[in-house]
């Protein structure tokens, strides 16, 4: 997926600034600087952490979202939906009708309709498949995206702060949210992974 090559607007400068770098910089500034290179380095590293945190707090959906979104229509057969999700290696896709996001389908929506018994996750499907003969996708064969999608979908705006998106994910217990522009058109999707990845920045 495209998100693997994604870059963020808040990449930190290298953290391992050397004492020689600082010494050289201090020598370039005319006048006597009343600080040792070591003290400067400490100030620099602490300031850098503040800067990264400040930038991270100001990141918006449009900064971290995947723009090349896989999406389906309400009348897309579920077999095609499943194929698309498999091919794009995603666990959920928005459902779009007349340019508007009308719902969202995730693996959970498939699972919860695949068996007679209550199905909680993928392993309960595996368990049923192994215990009984044949697998349980049958109940939803012939249905379309519109039949099983969760609607309405929880969407966010391009300017929604990443911090707010994380809160929405937790409150609504969801893992992704389509991003829509001012006219309601789908412009991207933010998934849990996009937010987790931010925490691995310096």
């Amino acid at each position: 997926m495209a998100e693997k090559e994604k870059t963020y607007p808040a990449p930190g400068p290298p953290l391992d600034i050397s004492d020689d770098d600082i010494f050289a910089a201090m020598a370039e500034i005319p006048g006597y600087l009343d600080i040792t290179p070591d003290d400067f380095k400490e100030v620099y590293l602490l300031a850098l952490r503040h800067a990264v945190n400040r930038l991270r707090r100001s990141l918006k959906a449009k900064d971290v979202m995947t723009r090349d979104v896989a999406w389906v229509s309400p009348d897309t057969p579920l077999a095609e939906v499943a194929e698309l999700m498999a091919r794009r290696e995603v666990s959920g896709v928005p459902v779009v009708a007349q340019g508007k996001v009308v719902g969202i389908i995730s693996e959970k929506d498939f699972l919860s309709r695949m068996g007679a018994e209550e199905i909680k996750n993928f392993m309960s499907v595996v368990a049923q498949c192994l215990k009984e003969k044949g697998c349980k996708a049958l109940p939803i064969r012939g249905q379309t995206a519109g039949d099983i999608m969760a609607a309405p979908a929880v969407t966010v705006a391009e300017d929604t702060l990443v911090a707010d998106i994380a809160r929405i994910f937790n409150e609504k217990k969801i893992n992704r949210a389509p991003v829509i522009d001012a006219r309601g058109r789908l412009t991207g999707i933010v998934a849990r992974g996009d937010i987790v990845r931010l925490s691995s920045l310096p």
């Binding site: 004492d19 010494f23 020598a27 005319p30 006597y32 600087l33 600080i35 040792t36 290179p37 070591d38």
Partner: peptide, 13 residues
Amino acid sequence: GAKSPPRVGLGEM
């Protein structure tokens, strides 16, 4: 162990 600051230039002196 910390490095001491560089010498200032002639102009500063």
